[in-house]
Amino acid sequence: MALQAIAFYVMAAVTVIAGFCVVSARNPVHSVLWLILTFFSAAGLFVLMGAEFLAMLLVVVYVGAVAVLFLFVVMMLDVDFAALRQGFAQYMPLGLLIAVFLAAEMVLVASTVATKGAAAHNDTPMASGFGMDAPNAEAIGRVLYTDYVYFFQASGLVLLVAMIGAIVLTLRHKPGVRRQVVMDQVLRSPKTGMKIANPKPGEGIGE
């Protein structure tokens, strides 16, 4: 129990500090790296609660996809971050006020859920759901592929349509683009890939 408490406080502290560093870091690339640290320690907190599936999802989806996407955007778009920072002090009071409200709301919601909501009636909300003695990834998998198979498959089709749409609307077969054709590369022999020329001095080969 003591070990769990230590782990919780360490990871919670890392989450909060890293979260603060996301905002305060001068270099946007550092911001994204701090964000990744925040995600990792939040995933650790999920593991402590027994929600290892959510932890996995957080790492795979947020660290693996979303944060990398952020990195791409930050590095590829020429955003003037110095200009974005202007007026920081000016907007500070309003921002703090909103932050206080947000924190108060979250505390209210969390305490209500803990005392009156589902968590109040269930001591181990995540560890073993649906009356099954199984880890929650397995428990979720069991209902996902039985009770919710219709929604699950239909959502897959929605993603398929999104993929088809992105390809249809953006893929262009431009003439003159040199694509990599593995078959051609493999079938290349010294005969087809090499030309022996005998240039005169000072002339070069030309095309």
Binding site: A154, V158, V161, G165, V168, L169
Partner: peptide
């Protein structure tokens, strides 16, 4: 259902 058909229609 709504999303599936509307996404296809947007495209």
């Amino acid at each position: 259902g709504v999303e599936l058909h509307s996404l296809a229609l947007y495209v």
